[in-house]
Design a protein around this nucleic acid. Structure first.
Lengths: 193, 193
DNA sequence: GTCTATAAGCCGATAGAC
DNA sequence: GTCTATCGGCTTATAGAC
């Protein structure tokens, strides 16, 4: 239970996470990760079977923190359900304006590994997005919305759309447009249920 | 005017286009493109300054054909404005179910080159998406919709969101959900204008 | 568990002949 | 304009000592 010191493995995942997100998966070599982590390549290969294994660990480590952040933004927002959903997009726009922001690591990895459909990292990304969608569907269902699942899917489309569009145009105001669209769809679903 | 035979350069761009889309930019070597085009690497470097130059040519060649296709789907559809917009998503879902479909080449390239913000290929991708957005905004404006620009932005968010989500989950039904959301937003904007 | 050293091959790009 | 041949460097991954 008492294990406060950061393990070698954690340090490697940390270094990999920063580099993969900043530069892209295939642009970063195993050498670069090992050097950034302050270990030799041989040590890295002691802790991970392959680079693919390391990529999977990178995304695994971002799963829960990302989900928690979205939930926090939703819960901290004032107003009705539509306003709380919109708050996620507004907060995301703020984050996206940071110069180091480079889109969604899960989506970028899926795009880069599109030629390897069954890759573990893609499965982790798909599961991550599904968790968020399921949480939203439950929130909508609790609010008494008909077809809460379909509305949750539409929110994911707007969310991931804003990641893609903002990365391309480098214009975070698209996230605020996505938030407005999301709020309009939630209000439309609330009215008819 | 009379130039029916395919030039060497066109053959190289063709081969690059197929490989880059199928495998990803960084996963494909210049050697592989040259071999697929049936020329030597030296010939390739006679026609293109660098691999980056070749990447730009790949996306440049997809710009107009893609735009034409979207416009064709819109114009061929029956029904009101919302139905015609939704038709784009329905047609896209059909295409996305083809096993060789691997998302949007423009978005995947932007994701892969996220660490090179000013890359020519990213500029081409951004311009491509902007052209589509501008065309949609004009269509909405002609239909008498208030804030046609904002609605067009929302359509782009849903479109690019569906590219990203369907690539991740390999479930083209998300495109039909995006189409429903798009139609609902168009109807909402039509009603209030 | 971490090290030094290296395998075996691929990378983008170029030299110089014809 | 297209060829053969090759550069120097980087790639993932491994061998074997301690």
């Amino acid at each position: 239970m008492a294990k406060p010191e950061r393990t070698t493995r954690e340090g490697i995942v940390d270094a990999a996470s920063k580099l993969f997100y900043a530069e892209g998966i295939r642009a970063v070599s195993v050498d670069a990760v090992a050097e950034a982590a302050g270990v030799t390549k041989r040590t890295l290969y002691y802790h991970f079977d392959s680079k693919d294994d390391l990529i999977a660990a990178y995304l695994e480590g971002r799963d829960q923190p990302n989900l928690s952040l979205f939930r926090k933004w939703f819960e901290a927002a004032d107003g009705d359900l539509a306003a709380k959903v919109e708050a996620i997009f507004v907060n995301l726009a703020r984050v996206a304006r940071h110069p180091k922001w480079k889109g969604c690591g899960f989506l970028r990895t899926a795009a880069e590994l599109a030629n390897m459909p069954g890759h573990p990292a893609i499965r982790i990304g798909a599961a991550h997005k599904k968790k968020f969608e399921t949480w939203l569907a439950q929130v909508f269902c609790d609010a008494g919305i008909d077809d809460a699942g379909e509305l949750a899917r539409q929110m994911l489309l707007l969310l991931d759309g804003s990641f893609a569009v903002v990365l391309l145009h480098r214009d975070a105001s698209y996230m605020e447009s996505a938030g407005k669209a999301a709020a309009a769809l939630v209000r439309g679903a609330t009215a008819t249920s």
